[in-house]
């Protein structure tokens, strides 16, 4: 019996480091074990805009030497900082962030371990960043890709992090971050000034970005009372966001109780169009 156990340990020691470092495994699985098994819930909701938003302008491509490579279907693309779904008024690219001021770090669900081992990809396509909003965890690999036939640089500037790799045509490179930020920062290209997108770097995985319908879901949160913060590049903190039966602070923070095995639904939240700058 004892030798079986030793064998298992040995096997684990051989297999584990191949997918992740032993240290990561320890820090990721420990809190999960500490929390009662199965005490996990989910959070979902949809951010919509109340009112009309000004139509997006064309990107300032002008007479740039690379213009030919920067057109989409032969046309200058529109600015993609504010994307509102014309059908349900959903606002894309809103960050929903577990807000931790004064709170202990949350337990991390084991499912996030595999997710962290997968790299996040930020591509340059037709002189636009794809996707427009990115989330990457500290220690996680971010692949900066260039699918264009022209060179780019990927200038990431957040409060605590900065990278600015040059990415030649049709190539890729990777970066990692070791310090988290408290709010998202910018990604720009110094060669094509209209290119701009957002990135957020966080230790814990409890961050979501609203999709083209304004919908978001954060899975496998530890049960309990947590604060969540809403942020969008052209709004800042969504302090004017109205959520049914919920208070939202000037920092765009609302408190939600996550019950084990259940999904807390914040429903259709409304942001006045005036809040978008």
């Amino acid at each position: 019996m004892k030798s079986n156990f030793t064998l298992a340990l040995l096997l684990a020691a051989i297999i584990l480091p191949q997918s992740l470092t032993a240290q990561e495994a320890a820090t990721e699985s420990k809190p999960a074990a500490a929390a009662d098994q199965g005490e996990w819930g989910h959070l979902t909701g949809t951010v919509t805009v109340d009112g009309d938003v000004a139509a997006a302008k064309e990107e300032a491509v002008g007479d740039h030497a690379d213009k030919a490579a920067c057109l989409v279907d032969g046309k200058v693309p529109l600015d993609d900082n504010v994307l509102v779904n014309s059908e349900n008024k959903g606002l894309a690219d809103v960050y929903v962030i577990m807000y931790l001021k004064k709170k202990k770090d949350p337990a991390i669900h084991p499912s996030y371990l595999a997710k962290k081992a997968e790299p996040v990809v930020l591509d340059n396509v037709n002189c636009r960043f794809v996707p427009h909003a990115t989330f990457v965890r500290t220690g996680q690999k971010l692949i900066l890709k260039n699918s264009d036939a022209v060179g780019h640089n990927c200038h990431i500037t957040t409060f605590n992090n900065e990278h600015n790799p040059n990415i030649p045509a049709n190539s890729e490179t990777e970066v990692k971050f070791d310090t988290e930020d408290s709010r998202p920062g910018n990604v720009t290209c110094d060669l094509h000034k209209w290119m701009d997108s957002v990135i957020f770097i966080r230790d814990n995985p409890y961050v979501a970005i609203t999709d083209a319908d304004g919908k978001f879901t954060i899975e496998n949160l530890p049960a309990g009372e947590w604060d969540f913060q809403f942020w969008h590049k052209k709004v800042g903190y969504l302090k004017k966001l109205s959520i049914e039966n919920q208070k939202v602070s000037k920092k765009g923070v609302t408190t939600v109780t996550i019950a084990a095995g259940e999904t807390a639904d914040l429903g259709t939240m409304k942001l006045p169009a005036k809040a978008i700058k």
């Binding site: 640089n153 990927c154 200038h155 900065e162 990278h163 600015n164 790799p165 040059n166 990415i167 030649p168 190539s171 890729e172 490179t173 970066v175 110094d190 060669l191």
Partner: peptide
């Protein structure tokens, strides 16, 4: 490494 505070990028792929 590139030059901090300027557009000069890092030659990460070189």
């Amino acid at each position: 490494n590139g030059i901090e505070g300027t557009p000069m990028p890092a030659g990460a792929t070189l």
